[in-house]
Amino acid sequence: MDNRDTLIEVRNLKKFFTIGDNTLKAVNDISFEIKRGETLGVVGESGCGKSTAGRTILRLYDATDGDVLFEGKSIMKLNHQEMKAMRRNMQMIFQDPYASLNPRMTVGDIIGEALDIHGLATGQKRKERIQELLSLVSLNPEHMNRFPHEFSGGQRQRIGIARALAVEPKFIVCDEPISALDVSVQAQVVNLLEQLQERMGLTYMFIAHDLSMVKYISDRVAVMYLGKMVELAESDALYEKPLHPYTQALLSAIPIPDPEVERNRERIVLQGDVPSPMNPPSGCHFRTRCPKAMPECAAAVPVWKEVEPGHFAACHLYN
């Protein structure tokens, strides 16, 4: 993995929203890189900023501060024309396959729109390309004149994938692409994403709250809590030896589909809810729910540190 070059570099990225007189720090100073051909999983509970991070990296939101480099080139200062060209490289697959497809457009036109915008194919070639894309995601190419409502949830998510692939991107942000689907169908979509990655050398940022699935699909996994990244490590290392107390609690909260394992398992159950991101606790944001909180956790923000090679964490326990 180390010899692969860096495709995406995120530097001190911040995205704040102003709500009335308050500032919501949805993404607050996160830095990481994604290697070419890698899958980086991002996990965290609702409101932790993982979707905002994904959208800001694609510049669907304009960042408050910080920078995102694609192949070493900053995308934050690109003008409208340059950004449009850049979008061919970076695409997104959305969470809700019911809301992210225009119900009044045929599947052919939904996928074809991407080709039209970037002037990639017209006429007969456009039709052939759409059919090729539909076969690529294992849908029947003859169904290009159908409307989204004629497809099931899993099939719609395949249409969303075909649309993202139409412009031959290098990088795709998958924002909870399977959480709206049935378990049996989730595996279909995940296997498809893996096959496509192998075949086309795609790089994924895979955002999800299902840690079992993220472990399965990702090379490395980042954990977010209240706008901050708290831990980042190789997938197996994170699951075998989680460093941050939040990661430990998160992993321990997931029920394992094995009754014998469940009967003998000690669970760390966190107290309380995630605090409001409008007014997060001082110092380490996790300290109010942390079973290992110490006085210094309230005083200072923990630094983002490489605790073991390739294993980063932001926690006072490791300073």
Binding site: V183, Y216, D236, P257
Partner: peptide
Amino acid sequence: LLRSVPRLDLNR
């Protein structure tokens, strides 16, 4: 159903 879910405690 059992085969289609990944398990946190097993290798991937």
